[in-house]
Computed example of a mutant assay.
Amino acid sequence: MDSPDEVERMITEWRAGVAEQAERFDAARRAIDEVSVTETAAGGAIVLTVASSGIPTDLRLGDGVDRMKPDQVAAQIMACLRRAQTRLADRVGSVVVDTIGDAAGGQAIAEEYRHRFPPLPGEDDHRPPLVENADFGLSDLAPDPTPPATVPAAAPVRATRRTPADDDEDWDAPLW
């Protein structure tokens, strides 16, 4: 059986360990709060930044987007967002290892980010290959292989001709 002095020493060491671990977790929380990731698309015409929550905090559209179709711009923004969030999970994992180490709680934080923002399927370096896009030059978005659907022309509207008598019939009506 341990002596009272040994028990008190073990409790003191345990308290010190818990306090140290709490300080490391607090430092990790502060460091994670400071993490942001910026990604670009369309040759730099689109720049998107996400905060540590994965929520976009900044979106800048350069001059090049005016030569892109709206659906291409939207697809580029969404792809940029997904790449930024994937990199965010990697960055948070690094912060956790640097501040907490291999503690189970730190691994759980990093795993939660990897679960929320998983790696993109089929991408080794988190970037799609550049392809030639005739509408914009080099872009991250492959050209659409199907032409846009054409909208059928509307039937012509027959105009009715008003007579001067038609104009006078509302003249005496109240305005409201």
Rank of each mutant, 00 (worst) to 15 (best):
H126W: 03
E111P: 05
A149C: 11
R116G: 03
A103R: 09
A110K: 12
F136N: 03
E111M: 12
A149E: 13
T150K: 15
G93I: 03
Q107C: 06
R127Q: 15
V96Y: 03
N133G: 03
A108N: 13
L130T: 15
A104D: 11
S139L: 14
A84R: 02
C80W: 04
D135L: 13
E132A: 12
P119H: 10
L141M: 09
V92K: 02
G105F: 06
A108Y: 05
L130E: 13
V92I: 08
D90K: 08
H126R: 03
R87S: 04
V95D: 02
P118C: 09
R87D: 01
S94H: 04
F117N: 08
A108F: 05
D135C: 07
Y113W: 08
F117R: 01
G105H: 04
A110E: 07
I100Y: 06
S94N: 08
I100W: 02
G93D: 00
G105D: 14
E123C: 07
D90C: 01
L130Q: 14
Y113E: 06
G137Q: 09
A110M: 10
Q107S: 05
N133K: 11
T99V: 07
T146D: 12
A84I: 07
G106M: 14
T86L: 00
E112I: 08
D135Y: 11
R91L: 08
P147H: 00
Q107E: 11
R91A: 10
P143M: 11
